[in-house]
Amino acid sequence: MREFAYQRVTQVREALTLVAENDGSRYLAGGTNLVDLMKCGVEAPTRLVDVRSLPLGGVREGADGGLVIGATTTNSDVAAHPEVRRRFPALSQAVLAGASGQLRNMATVGGNLLQRTRCAYFADPSQACNKRVPGTGCSAVDGAHHNHAVFGWSRHCVATHPSDMAVALAAFDAVVHYETLDGGGEIPLSEFYPPVGDTPQQETVLPSGALITAVSLPKAALSPWSRYRKVRDRASYAFANVSIAADLGVHDGVVRDVRIALGGVASQPWRARSAEAFLRGGPASFGTVPGGG
């Protein structure tokens, strides 16, 4: 780990200014991923701007009757929040399926969305990796493939996005809110992670220097019966082989509403829109599913 400056801020504008004035600056929230990557030499920021003291924590009711989750709310607090559990239980379940209790106490919603892939080749600076050093190649393409992408990958990168939380957020059509020195903006989660293509190093469409301030869940996505199911190599503390956040609304035996998002399969949470379209309006039975018994 190289030496770096550390600064704690209490105002959003102060954070934005500090990061804008220095190319090597990075926001630090829970640090559960960034600090690991600094230790193994993948990240080498010259300044960390600690945003945990910004007034961005907590879960509140949105203007449309949905929920707004502040960017510095910890994963543990999101998972435990009564309204999250009541309105979007798959989000609570997804958060609890990730990491460990200690990590969830530190990790934040904003940081969770910006965490880097756990591809072993990415984490090893002596291996070629287009995501870490653009143009060097992808060791993983010809390497060990366990838990790499099955959808949306390219020859340039086969890494997956590791977040469980983001899978549930994708199912619920979440929107990411951010601030920059030139003003704020919002990005639907479905557009937040760009396709891999030949630029795997471009992991989000956030403007340079932007700070995530909140994530909102629209009232239209209210899914009190939603569920998150994660398949992994051990019963806890492992990334997904594949995970699914799903909600199914059935009336009179007919599928009216359906939301399906998959995790652990692509460089972004993968919304299964074709499957949703196939199911919507059809009969709610096992026989609907190709290959189902």
Partner: peptide, 30 residues
């Protein structure tokens, strides 16, 4: 039986899961 496995990169021959995040040992929940 269920978890431990040192994995080598088939190209470089090096261990690619040489830490406790990658080398799985049964967790409490197992």
């Amino acid at each position: 039986a269920l978890h431990e496995e040192g994995v080598r990169d088939p190209v470089s021959g090096r261990h690619i899961n040489a830490d406790f995040a990658g080398y799985h040992i049964s967790a409490h929940a197992d």
